[in-house]
Design a protein around this nucleic acid. Structure first.
Length: 614
RNA sequence: GGCCUUGUAGCUCAACUGGAUAGAGCACCUGACUACGGAUCAGGAGGUUGAGAGUUCGAAUCUUUCCAAGGUCGCCA
């Protein structure tokens, strides 16, 4: 905000004038004055004492005097301890209002730079769930924030389309599916494939159970159990080993994976068919959620990429090979451990393909900056990945960032797919939209709209509730998703913010012919609710900058709420359409318009749409 | 056990980067202009910021020691 910059510059000049000391404007701490004191902005003078060598109250007094005589923006001041409270003049508020009336500019922080954001990155064996929603909202939002700060943004994901998981679904479908398709069963493709993933688990459990009672099973139990260990506890622990060493259906699944890797025609055809179903399903979910991607990467195409890089790393001595053939990188110099890069059988692990994918992406897009949106359980992995890429001397290695976020819990505890407590993304969206519909029908207010418009409004409100509920929480923190609270529409919620916007639209609909020409002059002195709102709006670019620096959309969410709250108060206290004084009316209309634009922009950065009615 | 994250009102979250008497919402209680849209606004009650010690003009924030929860730690992704 230029007005604030100029205000700081004036303070800096006053310091120069009184003390002959150069104090850079950007080093001044100028905050909003607390409500219980008189003034708009407060200069905290404690930090100045060293440079100016006087007691805080004296400095405050002297700067205050100098400012009042030098600047026509400062009407008066008062000093409380080391705080210099500045009371601003109408000229100041008019200047600020004029600046607020201008279109919100794109910042130039990322000007000329490419930013790639990876988010969502699902497995193709089951539908998206609540955890993905947090991931997607964060990724989408950081991409929008990137754009708003001047970056050219490439939204991407890596789709985990291969591996044992999808083979399980494929096998189960072959065994018990009887040719079922999304069309034949009228089921969304991703849900259908997810169903067969569950089917596999059932078949496996049946087989396992039978085996447990067999001679071999009991023998294994007797030979391997810990002291006093019950059979149930043992077999729970032994499950993975059973899958790998004894299970017939497990062997079949693994064989399928081998066939897939060998390029077996039938297997690949089935794989393509079922993944195709899943992608169709994902597309619908993404569309309903209002997100899209610019460039997709598939694990099936990238999983081999890292190998040659690793082999080069061995010959150049960056990595080393153990006797058993496995390849390692030593990360002790950056405070980490040794990390495996290739298995002893020469196959690649998770990090291997990530190395390859990173290189591929850099070749494709030459990005200056890359953000991976992935849950915090993978922090160690990304530290190791970045350190390894750095050792390889990759140009972009120090511009990689893991946007790590806490997992989503339910009031009943963790989400666990095995226990069926996973909240499905499609179901969840349908529920919040339905909730919005009920709420709107009770209230009335949009009966005049046709059905399509009404449905569109319900969708916007419901999704706003859901998205805001999730995005308002600091990403770093683990969050509890309370389904009841997520559909709240009062208080700190998406619909509350939408309501402020809708009120403003309603005002402007009632105006016939008013032109806001961008110049404002307040007759008398603005009300406190008005100056508070203006100051709030003036913070937008600061908040946006900070959100980008910290990779934290929740800052924008909290900001949007603060603006909406200030507006609701203003709206309640101040007449707008019915005021006689035309300049005052224009001022308030200008303020309303600036508020609407700021709210809309902020919420757009979070992937939340604004309705015109609600 | 090592490392990382978190701990703030009954609950869900803030706190302008070390600033004034720690703020909102939900829930509870009391009110609001014969409503520019009440999905709103105002008020009440609710706190030893997990505990202790330290650093300084000043600490929820920095240091340190504990306590609690979660994550992670060489061939899962």
């Amino acid at each position: 905000m230029e007005v604030i910059k100029q205000l700081k510059a004036s303070i800096s000049e006053s310091i120069k004038q009184v003390y002959g000391v150069d104090y850079a404007p950007e080093n001044l701490t100028l905050s909003q004055t607390k409500k219980e004191f008189d003034g708009a902005y407060t200069l905290v003078v404690f930090p100045l004492t060293k440079a100016l060598k006087k007691a805080p109250p004296v400095i405050a007094e002297e700067i205050g005097q100098a400012l009042v005589s030098a600047s026509d923006w400062i009407e008066s001041y008062n000093v409380i301890q080391g705080f210099l409270n500045l009371v601003c003049s109408n000229k100041f508020w008019d200047a600020m209002m004029s600046e607020l009336a201008a279109p919100i500019p794109t910042l130039d922080i990322g000007k000329g730079k490419k930013l790639m954001v990876e988010f969502s990155s699902p497995n193709t064996n089951k539908p998206l769930h609540l955890g993905h929603i947090r991931n997607i909202l964060l990724g989408w939002s950081i991409a929008q924030i990137g754009k708003a700060t001047g970056y050219e943004v490439i939204k991407t994901q890596i789709i985990n389309d291969r591996g044992i998981a999808i083979c399980k679904s494929m096998l189960a479908w072959q065994l018990v599916g009887q040719g079922e398709t999304p069309e034949s069963s009228n089921t969304k493709g991703d849900h259908l494939v997810g169903k067969y993933y569950v089917e596999f688990e059932k078949l496996f459990q049946q087989e396992y159970k039978t085996w447990q009672d067999s001679e071999t099973g009991t023998q294994v139990y007797q030979n391997n159990k810990n002291e006093e260990e019950e059979s149930e506890a043992f077999f729970k622990r032994y499950k993975n080993q059973y899958f790998n060493e004894h299970s017939v259906i497990g062997k079949n699944a693994k064989d399928m994976l081998l066939k897939w890797e060998a390029g077996d025609t039938d297997t690949v055809a089935l794989w393509k068919k079922m993944n195709g179903w899943v992608y169709k399903g994902f597309d619908v979910t993404y569309q309903n959620l209002g997100v899209d991607f610019d460039h997709l990467y598939y694990e099936s195409e990238t999983y081999l990429l890292g190998k040659s890089v690793v082999e080069q790393g061995i010959s150049s001595g960056i990595f080393y090979k153990k006797e058993d053939g496995s390849v390692w990188v030593n990360l002790e110099d950056v405070g980490m451990d040794h990390k495996i890069l290739l298995r002893s059988d020469g196959t690649s692990v998770y990090i291997t393909q990530d190395i390859g994918t990173a290189q591929q992406r850099y070749r494709d897009h030459g990005m200056d900056k890359m953000i991976y949106v992935v849950a915090d359980e993978q922090e160690y992995h990304f530290k190791a990945l970045f350190a390894t890429l750095s050792k390889l001397g990759e140009a972009y290695a120090d511009q990689l960032h893991h946007l790590s976020y806490g997992m989503v819990d339910l009031p009943t505890g963790k989400m666990k797919s095995r226990e069926g407590t996973v909240v499905d993304a499609d179901d969840l969206m349908a529920e919040v939209i339905d909730e919005a519909r009920q709420s709107a029908e009770e209230r009335g207010g949009i009966e005049g709209q046709d059905e399509d418009s009404r449905n569109d409004i319900y969708r916007k409100i419901g999704l706003a509730a859901l998205k805001y509920f999730i995005i308002k929480v600091n990403p770093r923190k683990r969050m509890t998703f309370n389904p009841k609270e997520s559909v709240d529409m009062q208080g700190t919620t998406g619909p509350y913010i939408q309501n402020a916007y809708v009120r403003i639209q309603s005002i402007f609909r009632k105006l016939d012919d008013v032109r806001l020409d961008g110049s404002y002059s307040y007759p008398g002195s603005p009300e406190e609710v008005e100056t508070e709102l203006m100051m709030q709006l003036a913070e937008f670019t600061n908040v946006l900058t900070e959100a980008m620096e910290k990779y934290d959309p929740s800052l924008i969410a909290n900001y949007a709420y603060a603006v909406a709250k200030s507006y609701h108060r203003f709206y309640h206290d101040c007449r707008i359409l019915s005021v006689e004084d035309q300049t005052l009316k224009l001022f308030r209309l200008g303020l309303s318009d600036a508020t609407a634009r700021t709210i809309k922009k902020s919420m757009m950065l979070l992937g939340i749409e604004m309705p015109e009615y609600m």
